[in-house]
């Protein structure tokens, strides 16, 4: 079966670091770190394990702030 590859683009300034996307990602792709913040001081998320993203959109669907745009393609 063809493998799905996904990618998430983070609107860094919109992110509030609530971590709901992180805990709702089935692939453990997303993370944030206290030392890496946006101009409002929020620790924004990034793809820590980009190779594992399937583009399932769970993170974007659960994000209250509309931060995430998701792309998906068959490898």
């Amino acid at each position: 079966m063809a493998k799905m590859r996904g990618a998430v683009v983070v609107d860094v300034e919109r992110c509030k670091g609530c971590e709901l996307c992180i805990v709702n990602c089935p692939q453990n792709v997303l993370a944030n770190i206290a030392a890496q913040v946006n101009s409002k001081g929020y620790p924004y998320v990034y793809m820590k394990n980009p190779g594992d993203c399937t583009g399932c959109t769970n993170c974007a669907v659960v994000c209250p702030d509309g931060v995430l745009t998701v792309y998906r393609v068959k490898e």
Partner: peptide
């Protein structure tokens, strides 16, 4: 496949509503 090959308009599956 690199991220830049995935992040293309034709592969878009979710974006914030306009």
């Amino acid at each position: 496949m690199e991220l830049k090959d995935i992040i293309k308009p034709e592969n878009l599956v979710y974006k914030r509503t306009e």
